[in-house]
Design a protein around this nucleic acid. Sequence first.
DNA 1: ACAGGCTTGTTACTTGCGGTAACGCTACTG
DNA 2: CAGTAGCGTTACCGCAAGTAACAAGCCTGT
Lengths: 214, 214
Amino acid sequence: MDTTQRTDQQRSADRRRRELLEAADRVVLRDGPQASMNAIAAEAGITKPILYRHFGDKGGLYAALAQRHTDALLDSLRAALDAPAERRERVESTLETYLAAIEARPQVYRFLMHPAEGGQGGDQGFDVGKHSAPLLRRMGEELAQVIEERLDLGPGSQQLARVWGHGIVGMMHAAGDWWLGERPCSRTELVCSLADLLWGRLAAAGDKVGGPGF
Amino acid sequence: MDTTQRTDQQRSADRRRRELLEAADRVVLRDGPQASMNAIAAEAGITKPILYRHFGDKGGLYAALAQRHTDALLDSLRAALDAPAERRERVESTLETYLAAIEARPQVYRFLMHPAEGGQGGDQGFDVGKHSAPLLRRMGEELAQVIEERLDLGPGSQQLARVWGHGIVGMMHAAGDWWLGERPCSRTELVCSLADLLWGRLAAAGDKVGGPGF
DNA sequence: ACAGGCTTGTTACTTGCGGTAACGCTACTG
DNA sequence: CAGTAGCGTTACCGCAAGTAACAAGCCTGT
């Protein structure tokens, strides 16, 4: 039979694919998300058509690339989220994990948040909602699941959990992005401030006396 | 003197610029953010080089375009944020305003959040932090200012306000983006859920009894 | 009234990218 | 040894960004 042979070939193809992805990774890390297919092919020591045979088009390559990193990051986050500890501690440790990741490899982070999109070819009938980085969506869903699993939110808990999941992820992301650009404080301070926000300090704060016109 | 003449010319140039921006607006609204310069020029009834003379490059045009919409949206938000009402009410009305805006004109919203970036020309030495939509940054800063102005946050209030500003804006954005794609609930419900989140319901919720392994 | 310079517009070009077609090479199978 | 399946190449197409280089109109100075 040719099953063993097929397997051999597939294994070889998979190895190739992984090599290509690693080369692409290096280039994207160096040149940002607008790295050209030519550059990636050159880095891998081959030429364009091979890339296209493996990944279809640029979007395919970028999707494959993104999934690797997304999976890795999500694994870390799940670990922090599922740790046996107090809620506040878990939240802080999750925030910390995320921020440490984007701090350590900003190029990767940037790529994940701002995928492909380019290209002038043919159909572009993408609706709003698809453009946002899949990483954010996945994180939001994941967090929603954990929230709904662990917390007693009364009626409508599932929807509430999803809103919160996406909302919290967005908060983390935006704050992290801003922080990464300006570095106005330490990571720990940022984590604490965000946790405070989630813990209702916004609602609890008093009005400022002597404020303008108040 | 030629000052009056200069003024005349400038006025004419400004009018032209506005016309061009409106044409670009129409095209972007129709074709999304990857509208070609050729298409925009055609819509305006002229040819490419004029666009380049007015806006430098595609990024310039897109920046000018984005600023118009950003300014408009920020004005609405400021109004909701500065209304004389209870804090919770103000927060909800601001969320409502933002969500209504992105719901009414998703193409504009999509464009604002995902500007230019394309093009293969020359320098691309942009650091992380610049890529995020300027709209988000501006909203974050604006909100931070209002927070710091109105709330008594104790020591370190300025930094705290900025973290919260960007965090809350990110929450709003991510939740809105997700909501716009899936429409899992009404706008009002979404607003209420988000406000609840900001009001500390996450911290206040009880652990689920009989949960997995707990 | 005519030479110079400004802005406004054009056509025609270059460069560089995503994507593809058509062709070699190797190696394994009958 | 013929055939065929995969890996790889060169050479090309289409298209978009961006750029000369050139052609009017209009206003000004002498």
